[in-house]
């Protein structure tokens, strides 16, 4: 009898607790998923100042990789390993900027910093990010658009 009581208290009640947690958790709203590989679409060259464009900009299909942990993002471009942007996603808006290491600064250019401001249209085009890339020292921002190349790992 004591064993049964113990089993109910130590095992049965916690199982009910797990069920309750699962129900409560369904109401939580996590950040939008943008992690994965994105293919940068051909930029509108007239919109930017060509001299300000990074040397690798037109080297071929450009891939942008976003590593996501909750709202925190790390944005990298495999074509240029020195570029690492850190940022966040709030709602549908993604912002990221270079961390400012000396190696990155020389890779980016005279202004020594870059920042990315992108928006996800989660209703109409959830697999497309559009916005601008600003490079320090350039007057105009580069128009930036990218399309999701690979789904998040769990959905592949």
């Amino acid at each position: 009898m004591r064993s049964v009581f113990l089993y109910v208290v130590l095992v049965g009640l916690p199982i009910l607790g797990v069920v309750a947690v699962l129900r409560v958790g369904e109401r939580l709203t996590p950040p939008r998923s943008v992690g994965g590989d994105w293919t940068v679409e051909a930029p509108d060259l007239s919109a930017g100042i060509p001299d300000c464009r990074p040397s690798w900009w037109n080297a071929g299909p450009l891939v942008m990789v976003i590593a996501q942990s909750g709202p925190d993002l790390v944005v990298t471009f495999p074509a240029t390993p020195d570029w690492t942007l850190s940022g966040t996603i709030r709602g549908d808006t993604l912002t990221a900027a270079t961390r400012g290491s000396s190696r990155q600064a020389s890779a980016i250019g005279p202004g020594n910093s870059a920042d990315l401001q992108l928006t996800l249209d989660s209703q109409a085009e959830p697999d497309r990010l559009t916005g601008i890339l600003r490079l320090a020292g350039c007057e105009a921002a580069l128009q930036f658009a990218s399309r999701r190349a690979a789904a998040p790992p769990g959905l592949r």
Binding site: G17, V18, V21, L22, V24, G25, E26, L28, T29, P30, P31, R32, S33, V34, G35, Q68, S69, G70, P71, A151, P152, G154, L155
Partner: peptide
């Protein structure tokens, strides 16, 4: 799983259902 209530909005995203 209770800790998941705290971690889910901070370290996960909407590609993962909360139950999973």
């Amino acid at each position: 799983s209770a800790l998941a209530l705290f971690l889910y909005p901070r370290l996960s995203d909407d590609s993962v259902p909360f139950v999973s």
